[in-house]
Computed example of a mutant assay.
Amino acid sequence: MTEKVLPPRPSFAELPLDKSGPRGNIWGLFGSSDELGLLNYVTPEVTREAVSEIVHGIRICTDLPLDFFSHPTFGRIGLRHEIKQLNDWAVNDDTITFNPQSTTQWDGFRHFGYQDRKRYYNGCVQADIHNTRKLGVDAWHKSGGIATRGVLLDYGRWAQERNLQPPCLETNIIAVSDLKEIASSQNVTFRPGDILFIRSGFIAAYKDLNDEGKAERAKMLHAPAIGLEQSRETLEFLWESGLVAVAGDMPTLEAWPWANEEYWLHEWLLAGWGCPIGEYFDLEKLGSECKRLGKWTFFFTSTPLHVPGGVATPANGMAIL
């Protein structure tokens, strides 16, 4: 079967592509009806090349338990799990209710738009979100899910080794200069189609909180957290690295609360580029194994839930080293 010919990735300086649209957008690059965004670049060739990353056969799942956050933030509901016995038989069914954004998740393109223009990826408007299934995460599922190369930058370990690590449960930024130095120290480079994973140490720090501390954070409207710097430099780095998605172990990818409205990563990545954002990924075991093996790249697969018109989805992610 002939592989689809895709348009080349424009330079960051060429953005926005739709000059009548908001800052940084690539609208129209894959056509006006596109719902995959940068995931278009996860081609069969990219997947085949990523398979070569499987050297040791070590499988590591990257999702936290659905009930990991006993006190979810942003007013989201936690896991509700009911088990029901069928009649008097030794047979059971269960019912699960949860917010897909209350634990490890991919933010879909319906989640966050340009706040000043009220537009989502490819110009989709709020009425489309409520009256159609445009931009649902089911489009990712129908395309075969996500299967490509992952690259882990372990900021938490790097900073700890240099006695630099700021508190992860406070508003602290991870700068592009940090990411570049970590990549150099780990001897990794990026290639088109990669997913970048950033371990900040947030999940490890959160685990150390007692139940009272977790409850207090959940009550905060803007519970502070470490994350990427909101800047032109960050966006240019992510774009020029050829990435198709970015994920971290922190709540919002960017340092929270957000600051620079011109460079909100959620706007540029989700609404502008069609680039999935991963949050609350469990990168603890993956970080340890990558360090032990001296191997920071791996095959990564993720199967989104097949929810028509879904806003977000558990990652169901697996790294294979």
Rank of each mutant, 00 (worst) to 15 (best):
V5A: 12
P7T: 05
R9P: 04
P10V: 09
A13Q: 13
L15P: 05
P16H: 08
P16I: 05
K19M: 09
P22F: 11
G24D: 11
N25P: 09
I26C: 12
G28I: 04
S32C: 00
L38V: 04
L38A: 02
L39N: 07
N40V: 02
E45A: 13
V46G: 02
A50C: 09
I54E: 09
H56Y: 12
G57P: 00
G57W: 01
I60V: 15
C61V: 07
P65T: 08
L66G: 12
D67Q: 09
F68E: 10
H71L: 00
G78M: 04
G78P: 04
G78F: 05
L79Q: 12
L79A: 05
R80E: 14
R80F: 01
I83K: 12
I83P: 00
L86R: 12
D88K: 13
W89L: 14
N92L: 08
T95V: 14
N99L: 00
P100D: 03
P100M: 05
W106N: 09
W106D: 07
R110E: 09
F112C: 02
G113Q: 06
Y114F: 15
K118R: 14
C124Y: 10
V125L: 13
V125A: 11
D128L: 08
I129K: 13
H130R: 12
N131K: 11
T132G: 02
K134R: 15
V137A: 01
A139N: 14
A139F: 11
W140T: 11
H141G: 00
I146G: 02
R149K: 13
Y155C: 04
G156D: 11
W158Q: 01
A159K: 08
Q160G: 01
R162C: 03
L164C: 12
Q165M: 12
P166E: 02
P166T: 02
C168F: 01
I173W: 10
I174Y: 05
A175T: 15
V176T: 15
K180R: 15
K180D: 07
K180H: 06
E181V: 01
A183M: 07
S185A: 15
N187R: 14
F190Y: 13
R191L: 06
P192S: 13
I195G: 06
R199Y: 03
Y206Q: 01
K214N: 00
A215T: 01
E216F: 04
I226R: 08
G227Q: 05
G227S: 04
L228Y: 06
S231E: 06
E233S: 13
G242A: 02
L243S: 08
M250A: 14
M250C: 14
P251N: 06
P251I: 03
T252F: 13
P257C: 10
N260M: 04
E261R: 14
E262L: 10
Y263L: 02
W264E: 06
H266D: 12
A271T: 07
C275T: 12
I277K: 01
G278H: 07
Y280H: 14
D282W: 00
D282R: 01
D282G: 01
E284D: 13
S288N: 10
G294Q: 08
F298N: 03
F299M: 11
S302A: 15
T303R: 11
P308M: 09
G309P: 11
G309V: 09
T313Y: 06
A315P: 11
A315H: 02
I320D: 07
L321P: 00
